[in-house]
Design a protein around this nucleic acid. Structure first.
Lengths: 233, 233
DNA sequence: TCTTTTATATAACAGTGTTATTTTTACTGC
DNA sequence: GCAGTAAAAATAACACTGTTATATAAAAGA
């Protein structure tokens, strides 16, 4: 549906507040972004072309340059979208009775998100391997920007809660433990996405063994006892 | 130096064994590969172009298509090179008195290789994130091919030795533990390469904490006691 | 030496992201 | 409502990319 250009925006004409030049500006931007997201999810990053994107929504390439600032701008926007979707997964995890239960849920949610949204996950972790098709959206040290994202926040809070309740060692900084847990799950998920494991069962059991093992080194005796109540299997 | 074409290969002409068509075939291939390696290391994958590569060694693009089979062939060759270099790092680690010492050395060597050869490491782990500029050199499930590489073998052998000496839990398969350890170190190194850690010290201490933690869940009590003798700090 | 095969060089093709130019559209002051 | 202006979209061009087709030159085999 393309809004008629001669509609003279009858409703918005009365107020003197400056409106966006085009009513369709925002909707077109999201329409463009949705199409880009689709292309990315389907055919990977090489399927995401400025020209194809333009013709997919029935416009010309210049639209991408005014709406975003070229291809990098589109990718930067998708990057934001990726974090937003990841945060949804994380924040859908109930805190449960014990922060340990929360922690376990967060790990599972992280893995689920990565497996179900591999393109978006790759986008998030694109700086993880310095060689990537995606350029860093901004000049800032992007990977460290993760720490400012909501999804990181959830993990941090869970770890903090564990420490507060004496379930997790407090002789390490919360940030440190959070980073270690992130690396742990990311490491497994990376390999799983690459098809490293020969079967679903193998991937499951290794994820379990890995998380179990690293927690063994981080939890207090009290924490270990409590963990066994929530730990799968 | 370009060998004269009219040299009529005076020395090799006498034996009737079929020689390669051109004496320069092999040397040119490696020359091409070295240049490609340099370009990759310097400017990332987008600096690696068939045309630039050709002009870098003073030839035309067709040479790349006869020596390799286009750009993918070059990347496949670099992929092999990456594993070879990684194996060198791994195999330079002395087995030491205890397999635990060996294990620790392998982890440190893995990290050192990744940090010092980030382009090659990215190549190895390029399938780890399904979205990558590099196509899988062959149609096989590439990531699983890691398990057939020498560098994986070293880790596997170290784990196996630990189990044999009762230092590591034997209620998990050697392959399983190997995969878990690989994921652990890869997870950390990924984040470190991305500049996730705010300082060298932070990266070091988190690597230590991570490896320490995961070993806590994998080593036997006997193994834990022995480990403390080798563990840094 | 002559013929045939093979590698290289040249040029062309189909893509890509980006930029310049021109046309069209929407807004604004009269 | 109409003219003038500013912004956005379309078109075309530029500088790239990987790949392929064709022609030329060199090497191999008879």
């Amino acid at each position: 549906m393309k809004l008629g250009r001669d509609s003279k925006m009858n409703s918005a004409q009365k107020d003197k507040i400056k409106r966006p030049r085009r009513v369709s500006a925002h909707v077109q931007r999201t329409e463009l972004l949705d199409a880009a997201s689709d292309m990315l999810a389907r055919g990977g990053p090489e399927a995401l072309s400025v020209r194809k994107l333009a013709s997919a929504v029935g416009t010309s390439t210049m639209t991408i340059y005014t709406a975003f600032e070229g291809k990098d701008g589109v990718i930067a926007a998708l990057y934001e979208e990726a974090f937003a979707r990841m945060a949804e997964f994380q924040e859908a995890v109930p805190e449960g009775k014990s922060p340990l239960e929360w922690l376990g849920g967060l790990g599972a949610a992280y893995r689920a998100f990565a497996l179900q949204n591999s393109s978006y996950y790759a986008l998030i972790m694109s700086e993880t391997l310095p060689i990537s098709q995606f350029q860093t959206p901004e000049a800032e040290p992007l990977a460290r920007g993760i720490a400012r994202q909501r999804s990181y926040r959830s993990l941090f809070d869970a770890v903090s809660a564990c420490q507060d309740q004496g379930l997790m060692a407090s002789d390490h900084e919360t940030e440190e433990i959070t980073a270690v847990l992130w690396a742990t799950v990311h490491g497994h998920v990376s390999l799983e996405l690459a098809g490293f494991h020969e079967s679903q069962e193998a991937a499951d059991s290794r994820f379990l063994l890995l998380t179990q093992s690293v927690l063994a080194g981080l939890l207090t005796p009290k924490g270990m006892k409590a963990w066994r109540a929530f730990a799968p299997r």
